[in-house]
């Protein structure tokens, strides 16, 4: 077991309207701690000293819920590729390091407090089409709908997205294209997603734009930052589907007609 002395510079902001500033905290951490456990140690010290602990979002701490995003030394989720902040361990740092911690920044992700941002814009994108409609009633026969293995795997690759927002945080344009494309692609590659395929991509892209995310400039920073390694191939697929849907959708379908 080896301990390390670190200096943290953390963004503190008391409320959405407050101005916010960086504050410096020394911390002694163990190399086997996760990054969030290290922050827990800082917070215990702050609480003992009667100060406000650093607010940060977390839930599963096992890399699947997507809530723990923050910028660590300029990188969404920190220095390790394909790793969420909660799965990052202090052995990725060394004794004496200075660590800069900032919230994800995007107009569509307003800061609630310190490192916690409001990502409900992602929820609204999902509500705009990230689902399939199924008939209620008796359960369908297993394997009644055949899905080729290779397609299932590609759909699963897209479905890996945990909606953490690292793509938006890393993108110089604060674009949500990788997130939206992962959700669009995941369903577009499965037979169950076909009936609503066109309406889905039109609705989700419209919502994405109206939330105030920037457009895609193909920097590919999102792919590099994604803890689930979602490929920008999904963005190309969404662009293709969006173009097709825009040209083929009959106008004012409103009530959910699907054109072919």
């Amino acid at each position: 077991m080896s301990t390390m002395r670190l200096t943290l510079k953390v963004w503190r902001q008391a409320s959405p309207e407050a101005k916010g500033e960086f504050r410096t905290y020394p911390v002694e951490a163990d190399e086997h701690m996760s990054f969030l456990e290290m922050l827990d140690v800082v917070n215990e010290g702050l609480i003992a000293a009667g100060e406000e602990p650093i607010a940060f979002d977390h839930d599963c701490r096992e890399g699947i819920c997507g809530s723990c995003g923050m910028m660590i030394n300029g990188k969404a989720h920190g220095p390790r590729a394909a790793t969420t902040a909660c799965q990052l361990h202090m052995r990725s740092f060394k004794d004496g390091d200075h660590i800069l911690i900032e919230p994800f920044r995007a107009s569509a992700f307003p800061v609630i407090r310190d490192l916690v941002v409001d990502r409900s814009s992602f929820d609204r994108i999902i509500q705009a089409g990230g689902y399939v409609s199924v008939g209620t009633g008796a359960a369908p026969d297993g394997n009644a709908i055949l899905v080729p293995k290779e397609m299932a795997e590609r759909a699963m690759d897209a479905a890996q997205c945990i909606g953490c927002g690292a793509c938006v945080a890393a993108c110089p344009n604060a674009s949500a294209m990788l997130f939206t494309a992962a959700k669009v692609s995941h369903l577009a590659m499965l037979p169950q997603g076909q009936p609503e395929r066109h309406r889905r991509v039109l609705g989700m892209v419209e919502q994405m734009d109206s939330e105030g995310f920037g457009g895609c400039t193909n920097f590919a920073e999102c792919e590099a930052a994604c803890p689930k390694q979602i490929s920008i191939e999904n963005i190309a697929r969404m662009n293709r589907d969006f173009l097709k849907a825009s040209l083929r959708e009959r106008e004012e379908t409103g009530a959910g007609a699907v054109s072919n």
């Binding site: 995007a106 110089p172 457009g215 920097f219």
Partner: peptide, 22 residues
């Protein structure tokens, strides 16, 4: 128009923003 949307989308700027892929 896209540049203006991107600027508005970013909102505040980072103290440190690593851009390894671009």
């Amino acid at each position: 128009q896209l540049s203006a949307l991107a600027r508005a989308g970013r909102g505040g700027s980072y103290r440190d923003h690593d851009r390894p892929a671009s």
